[in-house]
Amino acid sequence: MEAIAKRVGFYALVVFIVLFSVFPFYYAILTSFESGTALFDVNYLPTEFSLANYRDVLTNGVFPLNILNSVIVAVTVVVISLFLAVTAAYALSRINFRGRGLLLLTILAVSMFPQIAVLAGLFEMIRSVGLYNSLFSLIFAYMIFTLPFTVWVLTTFMRDLPVEIEEAAIVDGASPFVIVTKVFLPLMWPALVTTGLLAFIAAWNEFLFALTFVSNNETRTVPVAIALLSGASEQEIPWGTIMAASVIVTVPLIVLVLVFQRKIVSGLTAGGVKG
């Protein structure tokens, strides 16, 4: 009897966890398919399947352009930070030099920087070199959080690879650059996919810099565009369109996260609890 009660209790907890995690997004999807007055009735189950909100958000206004901007920024940020991080991580993990510990400490410290602390200085810098209102400002600014993170995770990953894999190449007189590209890179795909994906998500979701460095509707990225979506009048908030836009930008992320879930969990914990 007690065993059954325990089992029931346990599964009740499991159901609670799943509902807690999934329900808000389920409700957003539900709302995104409702139009007209159905929107303003509280429904727990789907009652209507209308694509009006999706048509609205994708044809009126500049939202498709905002999606394109987000893709450009996030992909460029990932490529640049991975390129800089792989070589840097090799130096930090496989070569001994004075000041290595201090460098790693600095990189860790930068990853903890509150974005607001550099906002004023970055704004002045971006304005004075004429990058204000351009996607380059965001690509540049996002390095502050993607670069320390990728360097840190790739360094811990490379450090755990055995010495032997380099030995033969060193004896053959291969240059460090050849060693990185020919010996390490092929072994590093799992780590690169994980860190790249996490950097992509971070860049895709960023809000404060995107709000500050870009003021053109056409140049905005998705998070700012969604935050600023407004209706015909001040009072009328277009919940249906907001939910449709939200679903559009979130579904690809969720698919990516679910496909790579194991890798992501290990990447998160490498960035977090290693040490």
Partner: peptide, 14 residues
């Protein structure tokens, strides 16, 4: 993992 994957702005709106 789903709440974690959702952008903060989107969860705020939701």
């Amino acid at each position: 993992l789903i709440p974690w994957a959702i952008p903060t702005i989107v969860s705020a709106k939701m």
